[in-house]
Design a binder for these strands. Structure first.
Ligand SMILES: NC(=O)c1ccc[n+]([C@@H]2O[C@H](COP(=O)([O-])OP(=O)(O)OC[C@H]3O[C@@H](n4cnc5c(N)ncnc54)[C@H](O)[C@@H]3O)[C@@H](O)[C@H]2O)c1
Ligand SMILES: NC(=O)c1ccc[n+]([C@@H]2O[C@H](COP(=O)([O-])OP(=O)(O)OC[C@H]3O[C@@H](n4cnc5c(N)ncnc54)[C@H](O)[C@@H]3O)[C@@H](O)[C@H]2O)c1
Lengths: 211, 211
DNA sequence: AAATAATTGTTATTACAATAACATTGTTTT
DNA sequence: AAAACAATGTTATTGTAATAACAATTATTT
């Protein structure tokens, strides 16, 4: 019901607002938020309207209240657990990163097929052999999986994850996964991102002076 | 002129087509490509139309020719060089990844501020101290930068990159960067992606049975 | 206390992207 | 050689997201 793009921006708004809150600030205007995130003030106001929060005119939005409203929408009322599959280069980087950050989402376990990488604690996250996938996911009631394993095994593991009750996947493997309708997939494809940057760079170089 | 979303898909089409080519296949239909990437055949045909390629009816598209047309658009005629800034966890993972992959984009240098991480070759990429940023970027004629450094230094380094002639940035730091109009920025924000997945998972769980 | 200025909230418009419809054409079959 | 078929190419439609316009409102100023 709330547009996907708005959800993305809400996440970014919240992070910016939390910074402001730390600096003891109380109110902010739509144009401040817009300027900070390279958006238009209209866009910001529209998003805030969509989530049903209202500021006070001439004074702006209460930072604290706005954070609360956004959090209610993004987080709901209970925490959500996630697991990482594949503790290679990328998997370790992500584990390390999220072990620092605190949020409503907690990474509760990691998995790998390589016996050298399991039964250890890496960046504060316990790592298990994939054979225990179903068991641990049920025990921890994890609902999200972050896929950073080799592409070859990705579809097979995905099927197991779905069977175990995972409802959302953040997929870093470059392959396209098949999942049932009720499982939400967010694909992140680094090659595509890089090729896209390269394309627009090329275009901008080609068009130099053509304005 | 070609829509951004089409550029993204072209990158994915090409990767799929290259796989097919390796298997010695010669032709494919729009519906095959669509099924493989979870798109509609109409979307695929439209994209192909936009880039001015035409297949043959009843026979489909020539895989080889289509790859060539896409490559002409995405790659242009010369290679493009990239650098990585920040050889921490994520920087290393990416360097390692792209040292394997072959494409039109080559990562020619890496930079860090930590003296323990410089003047070495990491995953086949030579790593320099950031003090040499301008020099090396000019020497290598790099046009793209991948930012995987700590957020604190990101805006400062970005200014230096722009000054040195960088025209495209793939930004993994979670902060929003200021750049001139002619510099293309692609932001990738892992927290936002994960929070988005969490939101839609929550929604789907809440709406269970409400269909 | 009235006027002013600045900001919000909402509706209207425009732009962009995806989907659908269908006419066209090359291939195959009989 | 003619007819049927199955795919493409293109136009039309719908849907979604972003932008713009403006009315409503509340602090501030005089
Ligand atoms: N590193 C990057 O920057 C990068 C960028 C884009 C995409 N990717 C993708 O992310 C994935 C991981 O990349 P990486 O660089 O970390 O690779 P990596 O080889 O360092 O790590 C892969 C890990 O997955 C494990 N694994 C393999 N099969 C498994 C299975 N069936 N179950 C559980 N674990 C399994 C391996 O043991 C290994 O530890 C790959 O699919 C890659 O294409 C990585
Ligand atoms: N690791 C992840 O999965 C992940 C996910 C999302 C975002 N990020 C972002 O990516 C960036 C890197 O993450 P990480 O986990 O690799 O962190 P990290 O601390 O492992 O690495 C950061 C590296 O940047 C270097 N650095 C710091 N300041 C620098 C400067 N001015 N010039 C050059 N190098 C500098 C540091 O020496 C270090 O090697 C951070 O901004 C982080 O927010 C990381």
């Amino acid at each position: 019901m709330i547009p996907e793009k708005t959800i993305e921006r809400l996440s970014k708004y919240r992070r910016y607002l939390l910074e402001k809150l730390e600096k003891q600030e109380e109110y902010l205007y739509s144009h401040e938020l817009a300027a900070a995130l390279h958006l238009t003030p209209e866009q910001v106001r529209r998003d805030i309207m969509l989530i049903g929060y209202t500021g006070t005119q001439r004074k702006g939005y209460s930072i604290k209240e706005l954070i609360d409203v956004i959090s209610k929408i993004l987080d709901g009322d209970k925490k959500i657990n996630a697991v990482i599959i594949g503790m290679g280069h990328l998997g370790k980087a992500i584990s390390n990163y999220f072990s620092i950050k605190r949020s409503n989402i907690e990474i509760v376990a990691a998995f790998d097929i390589d016996s050298n990488k399991v039964d250890r604690i890496i960046s504060g996250i316990k790592s298990y052999h994939v054979d225990n996938l179903d068991l641990i996911i049920n025990e921890t009631d994890a609902k999200i999986a972050i896929l950073t394993l080799s592409p070859a095994g990705a579809q097979d593991i995905t099927d197991q994850l779905v069977y175990a009750g995972i409802k959302g996947i953040l997929n870093f493997t470059s392959i396209t996964l098949r999942v049932p309708e009720d499982v939400y997939i967010e694909n992140y494809d680094m090659i595509t991102s890089l090729e896209k940057v390269a394309y627009f760079v090329k275009e901008s170089i080609d068009n130099e002076g053509t304005l």
